[in-house]
Design a protein around this nucleic acid. Sequence first.
DNA 1: ATTCTATTTGGCTATATTGCCAAATAGTTA
DNA 2: TAACTATTTGGCAATATAGCCAAATAGAAT
Lengths: 113, 113
Amino acid sequence: MTKHELDKSRSAAKYEARARIIKAMAHPTRLMLVDRLSTGECCVRELTDLVGADISTVSKHLSRLKEVGIVEDEKRGLQVWYRLRIPCVMNFFGCVESVLESNCSIECVRKPK
Amino acid sequence: MTKHELDKSRSAAKYEARARIIKAMAHPTRLMLVDRLSTGECCVRELTDLVGADISTVSKHLSRLKEVGIVEDEKRGLQVWYRLRIPCVMNFFGCVESVLESNCSIECVRKPK
DNA sequence: ATTCTATTTGGCTATATTGCCAAATAGTTA
DNA sequence: TAACTATTTGGCAATATAGCCAAATAGAAT
């Protein structure tokens, strides 16, 4: 493997690592979970009520967030409590919001052919 | 539909809109494209060389970014030039980076069972 | 008009994701 | 120990995504 190829694979790996994290946020339910957790920790039951899906579905979404390090969990008695590991994750929203706002002013984006 | 149900569907729609945008970023190749475009506009051929995939693949990734309003394109002669519509999209990276850094210090994330 | 160049689109297969149900697990309480 | 509660896991069907090739388009040059 040449130095150039090595550099290339290294940076490819870096983009993959970043993408894995962003992918974990890339679902409406998981965004909702992160949004809720940004206001404080929460147990699975309460998150399930919020989301309105099967508890097994919510549990899987939470594992996905946990897997990439966005949230962490702690068992207390029968319940498992989840919390955000990286509060700055919420910065995503501000940025995403500006894309949305910007889209409103561009016809071709609002109504893609 | 009650007021509560309406609120719920409205906010669900909001999370879906946000997720659509984040999803468009959630791919290593598309992150690479956005990263490159953050340094200035670029034509498809050059982006294709950078990414090292089939040009049709790169073109499809670019349409996806365009579809959600992250990039815009302009045809000049034979070439199509792409540029970032929302420079702040790059804020994603800083945030993602802190998740990655934080993961390095947590064994259970570095080596998930 | 024909050819050439740059890019997009259609079509296809392989792979990944989602969400539900049912079953398994872990901790609690009787 | 048995019954109960909260959560996770396995399995499966439906749907979405990725990437390649070939064909279509659009503009430029001969």
